[in-house]
Design a protein around this nucleic acid. Structure first.
Length: 372
RNA sequence: CAAUUUUGCUUUUUUCC
């Protein structure tokens, strides 16, 4: 039983869910650990439906099972589902509370995140860190900074999250200052800092940091790749890509992104066609290549061919329409969009402003304030 | 002395500025 359980765990961690589930299904006897391990394996990889099926089939559920199911929802930002489950729980501990407000954070609802955090009966360092991370990821730099300074003590995760807060806003200098203050840096710290340089296109500093690192992983490589890509150094980016020990979809997306600037549309298309496992970001990136280079028709037909779309896809096509001066089309598209955010409004507004139609732009601005 | 079979926090790629 112990050995089978460990196998389920091992395959689960490796992401071989078929193997994990095979072991699980053929086990002669199962205990609560077996069920929780199988549930956790699905939960960690974001297989909500399968996780839910295991959860519903379980002969007995303990607090670990409830928390594992809750974290499955939380990870995907399914706040409504998480709340329903949370309310049904026979008992709740710090883990449940943290998972609940993280669900709100993942869905972008920072207000409710804080409300739930304030209602928590007890808080520990992980919950503090989770709130800090929520601020950091949603770009609330001031709140993150205040929280960081009001925290009773810090772990490396706290430092790393604070670094992320600067990274999200592109504050390279402050990030560097903080980075130098961090006492025991780990791989996450360095990869975060690499990503700051990467976004900023600071390839030289990225390379210097990279050379000091004793351990690197795929994410470090992806950071370097982004640095060369964003600095417009496509040749170097290609060189790095060629020298990488392995590639995941992320690496492919990064090299694809490097081609979106400066008219390398054909290269982008070729890379896209060669990606073994394309995800939504791959599609959005190619769309962005068309958008930036004014390939309106190609952008439009790619958009129509996409199996799934998110807000980024919509905004990307909107930017293509708005920037090329097709304002009627842009307005029409804008009005049909299922959801809008600040980026959508800004795109529309600047499109109208550039066209010189100040009346329309003003009307739009008023509408924007009304919605807000 | 302690010594992880299961649950919560941090990093990478795409849209405006």
């Amino acid at each position: 039983l112990l050995v089978s359980n460990m196998l389920v765990q091992m395959f689960g961690r490796l992401g071989c869910l078929d193997s994990a589930s095979h072991i699980f299904n053929t086990m002669p006897t199962k205990d609560s650990f077996s069920w929780n391990l199988m549930l956790g394996a699905y939960a960690q990889r974001g297989h909500i439906t399968q996780a839910r099926r295991i959860f519903d089939q379980m002969p007995t559920k303990d607090y670990v099972s409830w928390n594992a199911m809750l974290s499955a929802y939380s990870r995907d930002g399914l706040a409504q589902e998480a709340k329903v489950l949370f309310d049904k729980m026979p008992q709740r501990d710090i883990i449940s509370w943290t998972a609940l407000f993280t669900a709100y954070a993942q869905s972008g609802d920072i207000h409710t995140t804080k409300l739930v955090f304030d209602q928590m009966p007890q808080k520990d360092l992980v919950s503090w860190n989770a709130l800090l991370a929520a601020y950091a990821q949603n770009g609330h730099l001031e709140k993150a900074r205040d929280l960081f300074h009001s925290m009773p003590y810090w772990s490396l995760v706290s430092w790393n999250s604070m670094l992320t807060a600067y990274a999200q806003r592109g504050h390279v200098h402050e990030a560097t200052v903080l980075f130098d203050k961090i006492p025991d840096k780990d791989l996450v710290t360095c990869n975060t800092m690499l990503s700051v340089y990467g976004r900023h296109g600071d390839a030289a500093k990225a390379k210097t940091l990279y050379d000091t690192m004793s351990y690197v992983d795929l994410l470090s490589w992806d950071g370097i790749l982004a640095a060369y890509g964003n600095s417009g150094n496509l040749d170097q980016a290609r060189l790095v890509f060629g020298n990488m020990p392995e590639w995941d979809t992320l690496s492919w997306n990064a090299i694809l992104a490097a081609c979106t600037d400066n008219g390398f549309v054909e290269d982008a298309k070729r890379i896209f066609d060669g990606i073994p496992r394309r995800d939504l970001v791959s599609w959005n990136t190619l769309l962005s290549a068309y958008a930036r280079n004014n390939y309106i028709h190609k952008a439009r037909s790619l958009f129509d061919a996409m199996a799934e779309r998110d807000l980024v896809s919509y905004n990307t096509l909107l930017s293509a329409l708005a920037k090329s001066g097709n304002l009627d089309q842009a307005v029409g598209f804008f009005e049909q969009m299922p959801v809008l955010d600040m980026v959508s409004w800004n795109l529309m507004l600047s499109g109208l402003a550039k066209s010189g139609d100040l009346e329309k732009a003003e009307a739009f601005f008023k509408k924007m304030q009304d919605v807000n």
